[in-house]
């Protein structure tokens, strides 16, 4: 079954289906993280004893992770540019870098979690740590999903590069939009959880 406007833009709406789809998906993601941030605001404002966040958590680790994730967004864009230009090798290089940076983010996150656990700082310790683990955990799941998508595009999915390069480039772009969103969520999480 041929579905129109999968790769070409529908003139009166100016959109392709996947692009509209991903923006709608992100709208619901905004509501998900928005709900979590609202929960954070409500619990913190109603709390009588909120810990000094930057003393509990490790700001250097989080800064490192911010740099890693922003870099991965840049390599993601470069991968898309390469795919658009039809340079498969360069696409593979930058997509591979994106994947490595994503993995590095997860490793740092794991070290950070481990550090907390070893000091007896658990989700049940207080609501700040509970929110920290919940919100960064939900974010980490999103990073993981993005990595799976990127890995698919890097290896098995890149067969499409030859068969239907326009559609493949669109897929890279869609994956990129999602990846940037995950990045943006982290940019909100970092100050809210580590600095404020």
């Amino acid at each position: 079954m041929h579905i129109p406007y999968t790769t070409d833009v529908r003139p009166d709406t100016g959109l392709t289906n996947p692009k509209l789809g991903i923006w709608l998906f992100l709208a619901s993601e905004v509501m998900l993280f928005g709900s979590l941030f609202s929960a954070y605001a409500l619990l913190r404002s109603g709390s009588t004893s909120w810990p000094d966040q930057s003393a509990v958590l490790s700001v250097p680790f989080a800064t490192l992770n911010t740099v890693i994730l922003i870099s991965s967004s840049i390599t993601m864009v470069l991968a898309w540019v390469a795919a658009k230009a039809g340079e498969l090798r360069r696409f593979r290089l930058f997509m591979g870098l994106t994947l490595v940076l994503g993995a590095a983010f997860m490793v740092v996150k794991a070290i950070e979690y481990n550090d907390k656990f070893s000091h007896g700082l658990l989700p049940s310790t207080d609501n700040f740590l509970g929110l920290y683990f919940t919100m960064t955990g939900v974010h980490a799941i999103h990073v993981l999903v993005g990595m799976v998508v990127n890995a698919y595009l890097l290896w098995p999915g890149s067969a499409m590069f030859r068969s239907d390069s326009v559609r493949f480039t669109n897929r890279v772009e869609i994956a990129g939009i999602y990846w940037h969103f995950v990045d943006v969520v982290w940019i909100f999480l970092f100050p809210v959880l580590y600095l404020l």
């Binding site: 993601e29 509501m31 709900s35 619990l43 049940s124 609501n127």
Partner: peptide
């Protein structure tokens, strides 16, 4: 569905943490 359901998604995650990880949300 798209914009309202995520609130329950968040709530269910928080309640799941309360039940499984011992948080007190």
């Amino acid at each position: 569905l798209l914009l309202a359901f995520p609130a329950l998604q968040a709530a269910a995650l928080l309640q799941g943490m309360d039940r499984l990880a011992g948080t007190s949300f």
